[in-house]
Design a protein around this nucleic acid. Structure first.
Lengths: 249, 249
DNA sequence: TCACAAGTTTGATGCGGGTCAAACCAACAC
DNA sequence: GTGTTGGTTTGACCCGCATCAAACTTGTGA
């Protein structure tokens, strides 16, 4: 939780501090605050409470409804963000990994709008809200945050549209391709990866049951499109997977 | 009135020109750029290309993929925003009415991420992007736009979660209650309203077929929860509708 | 005004995916 | 090691919603 984090940032105006070039060296590279904004690398990390905040698998970064204290950049590991529906059940609205920023939706009313739970051991930059807002007084950084938020809107809109319109096969195929693409962006193989979430979590994200997710994976395997072994997945025929997307049953 | 408005707006900065008080008089009132930000009423409208841009039913405000030129505030009428899926079909991702801002998602890459189509005759403020960005150099306005975007993220996240998890009855009940609440916010009756979209459009938004939407409305009517007559709806038992949301099956 | 297109309602039927169940496996605590 | 818990796979069944169809209503344009 945010409270346990220690503030070790300098006392002077943090926004304009010479940077420890930690962002530049960070494994997230350009993914976190992406292209065309070199200044951000120099301004973000020095604002963090602690550039090495770690969470263990299962720990929560923040809770829905809690007063927002920080904005977070994921440095390593995987998170899920969850929403609680009116009937009490929890639904996953996103999976997040290195280079992504968590907590932006909380800027709407000052409370986090989702939970964020670590799916693996994680490392984040926690940027206290007041420092973050200080950063946003600079128009370049401010514009950049708008870009991040706008992308988030477009991403979720597309997800919502797809959830309502696609079949289980289409959804699972799209999910695998999405993971693969994000993996490739980070320099890993787009063909082989480890799912960092359970079938149940995939199902919750896609609006399916875990049995259907598992069955669909088995189906793809039986057709030679992928190889699955537990959480290990290998995409054997990406274009065939892609063609699953356009074919209405 | 003009004097009041002049007071807090320095004359030399073009962004903060004394306003023609149109925003203050606008029917959107506080809904457009909501509470706690009086300055915005005074700065937004003067930036518009034309404070009386009108569209007729069926016209498009912008198209997906087009280079973004403006951000829009809806003054009157109803819009839908649509996304095109990889298989070519179009899905509705939102309905929008007076006081809501369209085009914010386009700030992500400079292109509109959805279509926006007028469902009725409409009137909008079209604010050219360069003027909008000028406005955003002021930290108050910039923060306000972040609030709008953050709310949009939370709204769509919740929509995506619900689409995947709710049954047809739950979805339609929630939809009616949502319309009702937004209607009430604008000073109209929360009990009686005219649906400004077709069954097919509701279905597209909720991930259902138009037949299922119609049947569900008929079902609610048969149970005395609502009265439907074409596009005219009257909510007769709001709490019973709300209880539809929590009851699984 | 009429004519045609589009939207709505209701019914009949079938399938995709939810539900229930059982066996198996991996992770972890002790 | 052993027990426990949670995740995975596969099968059997069935229900909610999609699909197909037909009759009807509403809207729109000449």
């Amino acid at each position: 939780m945010a409270d346990v984090l220690k503030n070790n940032t300098p006392a002077r105006d943090p926004v304009l501090m010479p940077l420890p070039k930690a962002c530049a060296q960070c494994a997230c590279g350009k993914l976190c605050f992406p292209q065309a904004l070199p200044n951000v690398y120099q301004t973000l990390l020095p604002l963090a409470r602690d550039s090495r905040t770690r969470l263990r698998r299962g720990e929560r970064l923040f809770n829905i409804g809690d007063r927002q204290t920080d904005v977070y950049a994921v440095k390593a590991g995987f998170f899920k963000t969850c929403m609680r529906l009116s009937d009490g059940q929890e639904t996953i609205v996103g999976f997040h990994t290195m280079g992504e920023v968590l907590g932006l939706a909380g800027l709407g009313n000052g409370n986090y709008s989702t939970h964020a739970v670590a799916l693996s051991d994680c490392e984040v930059c926690a940027i206290p809200l007041n420092k973050f807002e200080k950063l946003l007084e600079h128009s370049t950084e401010s514009a950049h945050v708008r870009v991040l938020m706008a992308r988030e809107i477009a991403r979720i809109e597309s997800h919502a549209a797809v959830i309502g319109a696609y079949s289980a096969r289409q959804l699972v195929a799209r999910f695998l391709l999405d993971i693969s693409a994000r993996w490739a962006e980070r320099g890993y193989s787009k063909y082989e990866f480890v799912l960092f979430m359970s079938r149940k979590e995939i199902g919750s994200f896609l609006g399916l049951t875990f049995e259907t997710v598992g069955r669909t994976l088995s189906y793809f395997q039986s057709r030679g499109l992928i190889t699955v072994n537990g959480k290990n997945v290998r995409l054997r025929d990406i274009s065939a997977l892609q063609s699953q997307l356009i074919h209405t049953t």
